[in-house]
Design a protein around this nucleic acid. Structure first.
Length: 105
DNA sequence: GTGTTGACCACAG
DNA sequence: GCTGTGGCCAACA
């Protein structure tokens, strides 16, 4: 049986996020089965062994804030703006750019 | 096996 | 509205 590690699922799930769309750490954690593992998700992305193959810059905080980025928060905002996402006061409208996993809106 | 760390989240003041 | 504290989870030393 192939039991993928927690971080492994995070990378796979995030890699499914299309451009111009974002998700939150809590959403990813919940999608993999750990609604309280939002910290573990951020931890997995922090190491980001699959960067830039994984669009980790599309993961933001539940507040809409960018959170952090291994390459620099400024780089994260720059990449997101290239995807067509508008950042207002350093925050993103989750109601507009939130991506739902395994479900089409 | 234990202790520390961390790109978080929610609640209280 | 912002700041501070507690709690949860997984990986690393």
């Amino acid at each position: 049986m192939t039991m993928k590690s927690f971080d492994q699922r995070v990378y796979e799930l995030i890699s499914r996020i299309p451009a111009g769309r974002v998700s939150t750490y809590a959403a990813v954690a919940a999608a993999i089965g750990c609604p309280r593992g939002s910290r573990a998700v951020g931890n997995a992305l922090n190491r980001n062994p699959f960067a830039p193959r994984v669009p980790c810059h599309r993961i933001i905080r539940s507040d809409g804030a960018l959170g952090g980025f291994a390459f620099g928060s400024a780089k994260k905002a720059f990449l997101l703006s290239q995807e067509g996402i508008v950042i207002a006061k350093g925050k993103i409208d989750l109601n507009r750019y939130r991506h739902v996993f395994k479900l089409k809106r």
